[in-house]
């Protein structure tokens, strides 16, 4: 038994269809439980009031935004090394989810930042690197969409993903450096480790687990869709071949 047997599209589809209902249900239960717990059964922060509770959406989505890119990187590597089509399609399927997570993180961040810092947006290193990550996602998706031949697109996007990852990390450090340069250390950074009280951390972990499962379910679902789309394309090409 090797995990590579799931690289067969048929095997992937049958297996993922079996596990997906469980994933959907458990992610829905965890997210709603975590959010209800977080919104209604935690105390207000003495400084931030109830505003702080947006953390239960903000942190899990930010986490997933980064993890989605990381998953794409791993899937791209698998495609480059082992040439499993499902892997390339999984990377393609994950990108739009990553974008949505990035946008949720940015928007909830803005909603949180407005009452806290008095501004919707600041060029804080963390915010800025998320914006740059968003741009990387856009480029990656645009490249997938622009190329007809699926194998060419898979090859080019995976190389872009590898190169992009290096530059994304570089940008993260560059942005850190750049803002210190501007603000002489007076930063708006949200230091979660210090801020989050125990009363908040448990529902936060529940939400994070829920988001992770939701992400997994969405990736499996979308990969299945991509596989079927490829299958249709292949069948149509076959028809042309026979004609």
């Amino acid at each position: 038994m090797s995990i590579w047997e799931y690289a067969n599209p048929k095997k992937f589809l049958t297996t993922s269809e079996k596990v997906m209902p469980a994933l959907w249900v458990s992610s829905a239960v965890l997210i709603s439980a975590g959010l209800i717990w977080g919104f209604f059964f935690t105390p207000d922060d003495y400084r931030q009031g109830s505003t702080v509770k947006i953390i239960f959406l903000h942190v899990p989505s930010a986490l997933m935004a980064i993890n989605a890119w990381f998953m794409m990187l791993v899937a791209s590597l698998v495609w480059v090394i082992r040439r499993h089509h499902v892997s390339a399609l999984a990377a393609r399927a994950a990108a739009p989810i990553g974008v949505v997570m990035t946008v949720i993180a940015l928007i909830t961040g803005a909603f949180w930042g407005q009452p806290m810092w008095g501004t919707w947006w600041a060029w804080d290193p963390r915010l800025t690197s998320f914006l740059v990550l968003f741009l990387f996602y856009l480029g990656y998706i645009a490249l997938w969409e622009a190329i007809d031949n699926p194998d060419t697109a898979a090859d080019l996007t995976s190389i872009l993903c590898l190169v992009g990852s290096v530059f994304a990390v570089l940008s993260r450090y560059a942005v850190n450096f750049w803002n210190q340069g501007l603000h002489q250390g007076a930063s708006l950074s949200l230091d979660e480790k210090e801020n989050v009280h125990d009363a908040f951390s448990s529902p936060l972990y529940v939400c994070m687990a829920g988001f992770a499962l939701l992400f997994l379910a969405l990736v499996l679902y979308r990969t299945g869709t991509e596989i079927r789309a490829r299958r249709i394309k292949a069948l149509m090409a076959r028809e042309r071949l026979e004609a």
Partner: peptide, 15 residues
């Protein structure tokens, strides 16, 4: 001229 592969042969290559 390449003959189309078996239609049930739905493997990693899709074709």
């Amino acid at each position: 001229k390449a003959k189309p592969p078996e239609i049930d042969d739905f493997d990693g290559g899709f074709l």
